[in-house]
Design a protein around this nucleic acid. Structure first.
Lengths: 201, 201
DNA sequence: ATCACTGAACAGACAGGTCTGTCTGCTAAT
DNA sequence: ATTAGCAGACAGACCTGTCTGTTCAGTGAT
């Protein structure tokens, strides 16, 4: 029987993922040992390995959880606005909150993928899928107003443009630890958008 | 006395850096041990540590060398063309060559920075400086035609736009292991450029 | 109500390997 | 003889993953 335990936060599996979330994100995958995860989540090693067959499996579980939260939050922020301009601006609010926190680390998915050189690893595959979903949301939820008004090719171009600016801004913000790349990318996105506005078929 | 040895490639220090270059780039920093570097470069451990005080120092030396080559190549490709459009296109030729090589790994600087969570580490500082230099080159060598024709703010915006698209394309190309992000970013860059062309003061 | 039983989590030793960095001794060339 | 490099043992820490044994809450039967 599946108990809907309200104190699920204290269950070992959740504690492990919660700790891993913090450590993998802040320190990176390679620089975080299972021993640290175990001790900081107050769990026995045996318990750890009954819940997760390996460190990599935990990483994947973490990414899955993070993806769920991230996508949900992303969509929520977008759907709060009606105009395309405001929706584009809403995309970037995801980052504004994080940037000024101590030890900003950019996109957890990209950082994770960077530590796995084998492009066929499940981690890499998952991050690819995640980024694909983000692109889909940009096409279907952010820019949907433009789809019927543009030629199919033009619409794809627009999506790719907005998307490239978005990822570029994230990377540069992480690199410089300043928020001007986000402002710049947003400004440029709106400019591109307006240039497509007059381009209706 | 500094011998200008033509067989400098066989000198231990060069062999070490060459091997490190391959391994750090392909496997990442954390996943590459000094033992592997030592054995693959055919060098004694003691020799390694007489040339480099630590693994991190080697990484820094590698980045320095890579930066020199990269910037030089970047500038050369750009200066081969006169028109701004062609110069922007030339920026992207840096990647076209690498993409289809087995085990493409994107930008070595970004990947390296991703493995150092301490933003004050020398590695992170160096990558920041590198990316700043790239931005300077975009401003001074690629888009220089536009500087006198635009208001200062507009010019900065233009530089940031081209630059964000550039970094975004690199990341996405690495992620998807396909080259459409580069095509898309280039196309968008040219479009932005043309929108600024009519905007002369 | 007390019994034994079960399952989950705990604590931590352990194996076997890898990590960075140091040190000693040997060889060869200048 | 001095210097550079080679070979490789070694220290000490850390790594992932396994294993043994303990504690304890819940459950069903008596």
């Amino acid at each position: 029987m599946m108990t809907l335990d309200p104190s699920s936060v204290s269950r070992p599996r959740e504690r492990i993922i919660e700790t891993a979330s913090r450590l993998f994100f802040r320190q990176g995958y390679c620089s975080t040992g299972v021993n640290q995860i175990i001790s900081e989540s107050g769990v026995a090693k045996a318990s750890f390995y009954t819940h997760f067959p390996s460190k990599e499996a935990l990483a994947l579980a973490w990414l899955r959880q993070r993806e769920e939260n991230w996508i949900q939050q992303f969509k929520e922020r977008i759907e709060q606005h009606q105009s395309t301009d405001k929706r584009v601006a809403a995309m970037y609010t995801m980052w504004y909150d994080q940037i000024h926190e101590e030890g900003y680390r950019g996109c957890g998915f990209i950082n994770m993928a960077g530590e796995f050189s084998n492009e066929k690893s499940p981690i890499r595959a998952f991050v690819r899928e995640h980024k694909d979903r983000v692109r889909q949301i940009i096409a279907n939820d952010v820019l949907n107003e433009y789809r019927p008004r543009l030629k199919s090719n033009d619409f794809d171009e627009l999506v790719n443009a907005i998307y490239s600016l978005f990822d570029g801004a994230i990377i540069q913000t992480q690199n410089f630890m300043q928020d001007w790349p986000i402002d710049a990318a947003l400004k440029t996105s709106l400019k591109i958008l307006s240039s497509y506005r007059d381009k209706a078929i």
